[in-house]
């Protein structure tokens, strides 16, 4: 079912629950993986993905049709994710590198992570990036999204995203070479 049909169901009080269920089933995996790559831990990702869809439910009435539904859901997920990481930093009174260390430790100790040495090294290299840059890298490299799509989600210009991604690749390659 495409997003237009989904929206019709969401706007009808008689089919809103059914429409929402379809929306969750359609986007849950994309949104979960988008979040999981940022927060590393499954339980954290599980909490955030639920919060995202609860927010989608609460604000679906204010959704404007000039944006695509999936872009809007992604944007909510991106904001929730970045807020989670920001709060984590504030709550622990830790400088950013300590949050990165905490996430790096989770890479080694958390369940539901299965990668060889070079894959884990790549993930640790990603944790050295600022959160927003890491998110842009994930969307481009792993999710293979177009810059135009990322631009709509993050509200950043395509030119800036290209420069950001290029910078991120350079930093990652330097880390992989030196470590």
């Amino acid at each position: 079912m495409d997003d237009k049909e989904l929206l019709l169901k969401l706007r009808n009080p008689e089919t809103i629950n059914y429409g929402f269920n379809l929306l969750v089933r359609k986007y849950q995996q994309k949104i979960y993986w988008h979040i999981r790559k940022m927060v590393i831990d499954h339980d954290d990702a599980d909490d955030i993905v639920q919060d995202v869809f609860v927010k989608v439910w609460k604000h679906i009435g204010s959704f404007r049709e000039d944006a695509q539904l999936y872009t809007w859901v992604y944007r909510i997920a991106t904001n929730e994710c970045l807020n989670f990481l920001r709060k984590k930093k504030l709550r622990l009174f830790l400088p950013i590198h300590d949050v990165q260390n905490e996430l790096a430790e989770k890479l080694d100790s958390s369940p539901f992570i299965d990668g060889d040495e070079i894959q884990l090294k790549l993930q640790k290299a990603l944790l050295k990036l600022p959160n927003k840059q890491r998110m842009v890298f994930n969307m481009k490299y792993f999710d293979e999204m177009k810059y135009e799509e990322i631009s709509k989600i993050t509200g950043t210009s395509v030119g800036s995203l290209k420069a950001n991604y290029h910078h991120a690749v350079k930093k990652i390659e330097k880390f992989l070479t030196n470590n």
């Binding site: 979960y32 499954h42 992570i113 299965d114 990668g115 490299y141």
Partner: peptide, 13 residues
Amino acid sequence: LEDIKKKNIYSVP
């Protein structure tokens, strides 16, 4: 980066 195989290392219950 091209030397590394692109793979999702995360899984779910």
